[in-house]
Design a protein around this nucleic acid. Structure first.
Length: 405
RNA sequence: GCGUCGGUGGCGGAGUGGUCAAUCGCACUUGACUGUAAAUCAAGCGCCUUCGGGCUUCGUUGGUUCGAAUCCAACCCGGCGCA
């Protein structure tokens, strides 16, 4: 059976691969950065600016969020995600598996996808992962083998996702690429729970795939990616990749939590077991350093909320690191804050003013700049791969980027 | 001039005998953010600190009281009303 997307390799260097992915809504070059538009909106950025100013080629939205609001029926009636949000390029939807984590075990806590380097030694309560304990903390999602029961964070209404339901909803959303329903675990969860969640994710992957295969129409226009889990343990990552990799998915997502220090190791273990001819998407990553690491390990696609979230809250990516544009030191800097052609006329002083004055243009310009920075970095990384100068470019970029870190 | 109301930390504004270095908001400072519960959140914001606490503050001065930002008196300043 053919896949509705086609992955064409341009080169397959030892340190990273270069290609093009063709979808029913156009093509995009890999390695690629997918701009996140969770609720069918890349926060603060018009689709035409996303394409023209940012240079983005792919947008990613979320099943859980669109299911709750406005509802997948509405999106389907509009002609699918792309038509609804006026994005004519390729689209991707995440399955809602991440929300199982963020609204479940991670609810009300500060746990992220990454393990905290060293546990806080100030006697703070350990992050809660256990379901019973967590249920006392107001979490909104409970996992069982069949699926996930959750209450809407919007109105408290009760809902249930199963792999079958998630796929059906994603068929309605109609993205070119969508993900199987998985369970994203907290980095705080012990190994035994990582194993349990990983095996459950495998069972859910098989059910997601079966549901998708049963829908002939969707099969012809949408590609389904299976998700590899396994936390920060290389041996679990390998086991998960072997399992998921053998099921016949069109591509793969690598999800879950990592240890910042061992990201590369966990990725290597997973990638080694995945079919080399299919695309790999590293879910929810990342920072510039992480993009280099991911590419070096053979990742083809990334997505991350940071460019827009950081931009919206006043932090800018620059070639010498991240800077907080709200700081008073920028109030008198009348130099371009961005090298992006369409933004180069705006100064640091102006952006500083916009943020301090609470003008909405500030977050919008900063979001656009950050997306352009990351998408541009991705493009530069791709070029360096093509020219065989990845390591040189990486070292050059990171040595300068670390200056303000 | 008489009457009246009022003067609190950068600003606004609570408090009207002890639990007040003084609620809260704004401003300011710092920090966080990785498949977006987020145009959000956290911490700090008189001075000093060996983090136990210590010291000086609520227009000014004096007084009452064990104890005053809170009560009294005088004075200074401001709003309003009447002359």
């Amino acid at each position: 059976m053919g896949s509705p997307i086609r992955f064409e390799f341009e080169s397959h260097a030892p340190l990273g691969r270069v290609g093009v992915i063709h979808t029913p809504h156009g093509s995009f070059e890999t390695p690629a950065f997918c701009c996140v538009g969770t609720k069918a909106s890349v926060k603060g950025v018009l689709p035409r600016d996303l394409a023209r100013v940012v240079g983005a080629e792919v947008a990613l939205a979320n099943t859980y969020h669109l299911f709750l609001q406005p509802g997948s029926d509405t999106v389907a009636a509009a002609g699918g995600l792309g038509a609804f949000m006026q994005w004519s390029g390729p689209t991707v939807t995440d399955s809602g598996g991440f929300q199982v984590f963020s609204l479940g075990a991670g609810f009300g806590k500060k746990v992220s996808k990454f393990e905290v380097p060293e546990a806080s030694s100030d006697g703070a309560a350990p992050a809660v992962w256990d379901q019973d304990v967590a249920s006392q903390h107001g979490r909104l999602a409970i996992v069982d083998d069949e699926g996930v029961t959750f209450t809407s964070h919007i109105d408290g209404s009760l809902h249930r996702f199963t792999p079958e339901r998630s796929v059906e909803i994603q068929h309605q959303l109609g993205a070119d690429i969508f993900f199987a329903f998985d369970e994203c675990t907290s980095p705080e969860a012990p190994r035994e729970y990582q194993v349990e969640a990983m095996r459950r994710t495998h069972r859910w992957a098989a059910r997601s795939l079966a549901t998708h295969r049963a829908n002939l129409e969707a099969r012809s226009t949408q590609a389904i990616f299976g998700i590899v889990q396994g936390g920060r343990y290389p041996e679990l990552r390998a086991e998960s990749a072997r399992e998921i990799g053998s099921m016949g998915f069109d591509g793969f997502g690598i999800g879950g939590s990592f240890s910042k220090r061992d990201l590369g190791e966990a990725l290597a273990a997973a990638v080694h077991e995945l079919p080399p001819d299919k695309p790999r998407h590293l879910l929810g990553i990342g920072e510039p350093e992480d993009l280099f690491e991911g590419v070096a390990q053979g990742i083809d696609m990334f997505d991350c909320v940071l460019p827009t979230r950081l931009g919206r809250t006043g932090t800018l990516y620059t070639s010498s690191g991240k800077v907080d544009i709200r700081k008073s030191e920028f109030a008198s800097v009348h130099q371009p804050f961005s090298t992006v052609p369409d933004l180069a006329g705006f100064s640091y002083a102006y952006l500083n003013h916009l943020f301090r004055a609470g003008e909405m243009l500030g977050p919008l310009l900063a979001s656009m700049h950050n997306l352009a920075f990351i998408v541009g970095l991705m493009r530069d990384i791709r070029t360096s791969l093509v020219e065989g100068e990845f390591d040189m470019f990486k070292n050059k970029f990171l040595s300068q980027y670390a200056l303000k870190k």
